[in-house]
């Protein structure tokens, strides 16, 4: 019968770990914004373009 006590202990531990995970996710800001991430994930990762010229061009434009 002592198995029951162990099982209850485990079940509460499992539930408590879910609670901890939930609290952690709130704390890390995952619940702060429930819209933007859903859009963000749809953007494709395009290749980074390593040209320097481009930066200077834009820079010039900004300085105009």
């Amino acid at each position: 019968m002592s198995a029951l006590f162990i099982l209850i202990g485990i079940s509460i531990l499992v539930a408590a770990s879910f609670l901890a995970a939930f609290l952690w996710s709130v704390k890390s800001g995952q619940f702060d914004d429930d819209y933007t991430p859903s859009v963000r994930m749809l953007f494709d990762d395009t290749k980074q373009i390593p040209t320097k010229k481009i930066q200077t061009k834009t820079q010039q434009k900004l300085n105009d």
């Binding site: 609290l23 709130v26 704390k27």
Partner: peptide, 11 residues
Amino acid sequence: FNRQRIYKIGV
């Protein structure tokens, strides 16, 4: 943004 409220609901 009030995270406290979400903690309370979770607990």
